[in-house]
Nucleic acid binder design. Structure first.
Length: 892
RNA sequence: AGGCCCGUAGCUCAGUGGUAGAGCGCUUCCUUGACACGGAAGAGGUCGUUGGUUCGAAACCAAUCGGGCCUACCA
């Protein structure tokens, strides 16, 4: 590894991320920089990576997640923490099973049933190997400093042990139960879904269709309306509002079902019925509608289940049995119309429930499932956020969390799938059907034998658990729970949970509940929720739309560092990040800038002697850049501590490009190329110090280029073998020097004024002219001291004093004035225009300030320092206005 | 129905009480010994609208318009 500064010659003229980035990941990992120590005495900082689904590859959202987390982890690691970033992947039950089934169908034209459960699950494991490796590869390409020695999977043996343990304990505590109820059923996936797994299609256009039920005594009819006519085959009541005069006489009477001939009652129910809506009479289908189910319980109505698991009508559908529900809908309507009972239709907008995974319309369906009694768990999770043990960033999510937690429903956790953690419940074969819940089959049998003798036979529940059940345990199952491990003692509670706001309920809430219940402490101190990455039009990226930007493609084109920096700089946005490649391109240029700044430094460090350089008396310019470095370190630290990643990015960007490259490198050239060895040494010191600080500050966001460049800095500066473990810069590392920015200001403004004059007068840089400085006191001294520097940066000859009464330009500055003879440079008309423009700006600004100062309540009520600042500024502008006014007159 | 977020330069977005900012794009000039993925100088904004609070509002409050999201059992 080149450490000699002669290495500058090895730096290419421009930065090629591809060449550099491929080298470092292996090097870092092989030296164990990212391996956390369970027995360290250092304070720990822990993040568990939200496990990506094994269904596919990482997308931009994952890249954002990885970037933000890596910034935090690298920052803390460099700041002396025992940093653990724990990777893993999620088995994603339904999603994965679907993907593998689809593939099976495509390649072998087989269904999972053709293979059988065991062979199918085997297939999924194979699939997992492939995609799991790809996800790992992608994270490495992004530069994620994950501790791969601790990598976990939500279906590995450890997770399975944790899942079974949790299931058994919850069951024993009475917080798990099995019940027959209505659930959300996906006829395509053929499994139960939790409320959260149903997406509601906003504003779906439907039809509200009305038909009449004839009264059983033939005395008339009652008209009801429905969006799902086929469910009328399972109706067991018609409900009206008890106070509704129109129907009061009908309550208690029976209607006759026009298709099945069954008779059932007209009931009064104040909760279900809104007399204002439709006809004010509602058909009641307790087996296929959540509200109707509740009505059925209130009024002891029979349940008639008319659907099969695949969405076809069952034998209760009478003549329509065997028809798909949508076919049956048409058929039922046609039949009722034939019977003369059609009472018309109207358009109706509704929120249509669809399966999150396959978009099939979900049916409320009667079945027996496992539930978590969630309220006792939710209570603790609410309290932990109320009393601040866990904090949300941005804070606004706290309300969302509370709203959901306080209105929570029992969680249906069983799924009719093959891929997942099989429920550790067994049923005693025979009439009783007694449930035995145990950690292992062996345990289950010993429990069963104790009660029923040796001959007892058990059948295991076939269902598996909701994926989120196992991911809910993630912050502690990954650390070894239920064993009492060192990892658990050292790293739990974790420091930050950083994830997308879209899974606040699915995941964050569940981890809170399980963590508090089983670990007796919150799973994380802070929840940082980031925005969604969308395409440049603001649309959600999806494979279907084909607008997915693959992070690997971006990385290949612009480099991982540029992509990471872009994501960090956009991380402050509300809910959407519209990612544009132009922006990434801009930050690739930033990498190149940094590369060339280092290249410049190395070209001038061939004879660098750290001790001598450190001791050399610093010029004002040197002091200035060190002061800027201190300020940058301070601001970076604050931004990172407060999770303001975009501020962090912009502070470092401004520091590197603005302060270091645009100013200091230019300023340092006179000293570096000059005759004075001490001046040169001091400039070398300031340059390399600022650069080193910049690299270390930037490392969490741009790990590759910073390591590559940092390795080439003089050995004396480097306290570590890698920038990954070098100390993160803090303000205290740099001298406190509050006066320098003020003292150095005349130099900078003289340069700016001359450049502006040149630009506005259309003088090319090659045209050299004489700038006469009129100044006195310390300002004159300062400019005199830096005469050579000003001359170099503005290509002028700087002289002091002014006597010749020739036509000239006036460039007013704070405490000084520069005059330039116009003869042969600029004609009078042009100069007049330029001056008028300048004067115009001054007059406008002065008018604003004077108006404020003329306002007596401003002077009386605004803080003194604000008023003072305005007065000083007004005086300054006033002087300039006078000066320019006279100047304009002199121009004729 | 309720809740939340967004509306600032042509585009993508920072900025949360004290003289409007960045990146890209645009105009003019520049192969000045790190960098044309560059340098210098510019143009461009009544900060969605209307009220209010305040000495002072892009920022705080209230309405309103536009865009988006989430929760919820209106048949």
């Amino acid at each position: 590894m080149p450490t000699d500064s002669a290495a500058a010659h090895e730096l290419a003229k421009s930065y090629d991320p591809k060449e550099v980035e491929s080298r470092w990941t292996d090097s870092w990992e092989s030296r164990g920089f990212f391996r956390a120590d369970a027995r360290s005495h250092k304070p720990s900082f822990t993040i568990v990576l939200p496990p990506p689904n094994i269904t596919g590859a990482l997308h931009m959202g994952h890249a954002l997640t990885a970037t933000i987390q890596d910034i935090m982890v690298r920052h803390k690691r460099m700041s002396g923490f025992n940093a653990l970033w724990l990777p893993g992947i999620d088995h994603a039950g339904i999603a994965t099973q679907m993907v593998v089934e689809r593939e099976l169908k495509k390649t072998e034209k087989k269904s999972r049933h053709d293979l059988g459960r065991e062979a199918f699950v085997e297939r999924v494991w194979k699939w997992k190997e492939k995609t799991g490796n790809r996800i790992q590869f992608q994270h490495r390409a992004l530069g994620a400093s994950l501790d791969w020695s601790r990598e976990r999977f939500t279906m590995d043996a450890g997770s399975n042990r944790a899942v079974n343990e949790v299931f058994v304990r919850l069951y024993e505590e009475g917080l798990l139960y099995r019940a027959e109820r209505l659930i959300n059923w996906c006829p395509s996936c053929q499994t139960a879904l939790s409320d959260l797994e149903v997406d509601h299609e906003e504003g779906a256009k439907g039809e509200l269709w009305s038909f009449a039920y004839p009264l059983a005594d033939g005395s008339g009819e009652i008209v009801v309306a429905t969006t799902r006519p086929e469910t009328m085959l399972g109706d067991t009541a018609v409900a009206v509002h008890p106070d509704d005069e129109r129907y009061r006489a009908l309550v208690g009477k029976n209607v006759r079902h026009p298709i099945t001939g069954r008779e059932f009652a007209i009931i009064a129910d104040a909760i279900l019925v809104d007399p204002e809506f439709g006809t004010g009479a509602v058909k009641v289908t307790p087996a296929h509608d959540f509200n109707d189910f509740a009505v059925g319980q209130r009024h002891s109505l029979p349940l008639i289940d008319v659907l099969d698991p695949d969405g076809r009508l069952n034998e209760n559908g009478g003549p329509f049995a065997g028809l798909d529900r949508f076919e049956a809908r048409k058929a039922v309507k046609a039949r009722l119309a034939e019977l003369g009972l059609d009472r018309g239709a109207q358009e109706h907008v509704l929120a249509l429930g669809r399966c999150q995974r396959c978009a099939t319309v979900v049916e409320p369906y009667l079945s027996k499932q496992w539930y978590v009694k969630i309220e006792p768990l939710a209570k603790k999770a609410i309290a932990a956020v109320e009393d601040g043990r866990t904090r949300f960033v941005p804070e606004t999510w706290t309300n969302t969390y509370f709203a959901w937690m306080r209105n929570i429903h029992d969680w249906c956790i069983s799924r009719q799938l093959w891929w997942g953690h099989q429920i550790p419940a067994w049923y005693v074969e025979g009439a009783s059907g007694e449930i035995i819940v145990a950690r292992t089959e062996q345990d289950a049998y010993s429990k069963a034998r104790a009660r029923h003798g040796d001959g007892v036979k058990l059948v295991r529940d076939e269902d598996v658990l909701d994926t989120w059940f196992s991911s809910g345990l993630w912050p502690f199952s990954t650390l070894g729970w239920p064993e009492k491990t060192d990892d658990l003692a050292t790293f739990y509670p974790t420091s930050v949970m950083e994830t997308g706001f879209d899974i606040i309920f699915f995941w964050v809430a569940r981890m809170m509940m399980f963590g508090l219940h089983f670990m007796k402490d919150v799973p994380f101190r802070t929840v940082y929720l980031h925005a969604m990455v969308r395409d440049e039009k603001g649309e959600k990226m999806s494979k279907v739309k084909g607008n997915v930007i693959d992070p690997l493609d971006v990385t290949a084109k612009y480099g991982a560092d540029a992509m990471r920096f872009t994501l960090a700089s956009m991380a402050a946005q509300g809910r959407d990040i519209k990612l544009s490649l132009k922006r990434i391109e801009g930050y690739r240029a930033f990498g190149n800038k940094l590369w060339n700044a280092t290249r410049f430094a190395l070209m001038n460090l061939g004879d660098y002697d750290h001790a001598a350089a450190q001791a050399a008396p610093r010029s004002d310019a040197d002091r200035w850049i060190l002061a800027r470095t201190r300020t940058a370190a301070l601001e970076v630290d604050r931004a990172l501590e407060e999770y303001r990643f975009s501020d962090y990015a912009s502070v470092v960007y401004q520091f590197v490009w603005g302060d270091l490259c645009d100013w200091y490198i230019e300023l340092s050239k006179t000293a570096l190329y000059g005759e004075d060895p001490k001046g040169r040494a001091a400039a070398q010191y300031a340059l390399v110090t600022a650069l080193d600080a910049a690299l270390r500050m930037l490392h969490p966001a741009m790990p590759f280029i910073t390591e590559e460049l940092w390795q080439r800095l003089p050995a004396a500066l480097k306290a570590a073998e890698s920038i990954c473990i070098a100390p993160f810069p803090i303000a205290a590392d740099f001298p406190e020097d509050e006066a320098i920015e003020r003292e150095f200001k005349p130099i900078l403004s003289a340069i700016l004024a001359l450049r502006a004059f040149r630009g506005e007068s259309g003088l090319p840089f090659g045209t050299r002219f004489t700038a006469s400085v009129v100044a006195s006191g310390p300002t004159a001294e300062a400019i005199r001291k830096y005469r050579a520097l000003v001359e170099k940066l503005t290509n002028t000859d700087v002289v002091f004093g002014w006597e010749e009464p020739v036509a000239h330009a006036v460039l007013p500055g704070e405490g000084f004035e520069i005059r330039v003879a116009l003869e042969g440079l600029v004609n009078l008309a042009e100069e007049r225009l330029r001056t008028e423009k300048d004067l115009g700006r001054i007059v406008a600004e002065l008018a604003g300030i004077e108006a404020r100062l003329a306002n007596s309540s401003f002077v009386a009520r605004a803080p003194a320092e604000i008023v003072e600042k305005d007065r000083a500024r007004a005086a300054e502008l006033h002087a300039r206005r006078e000066r320019l006014g006279r100047h304009l007159q002199s121009l004729g």
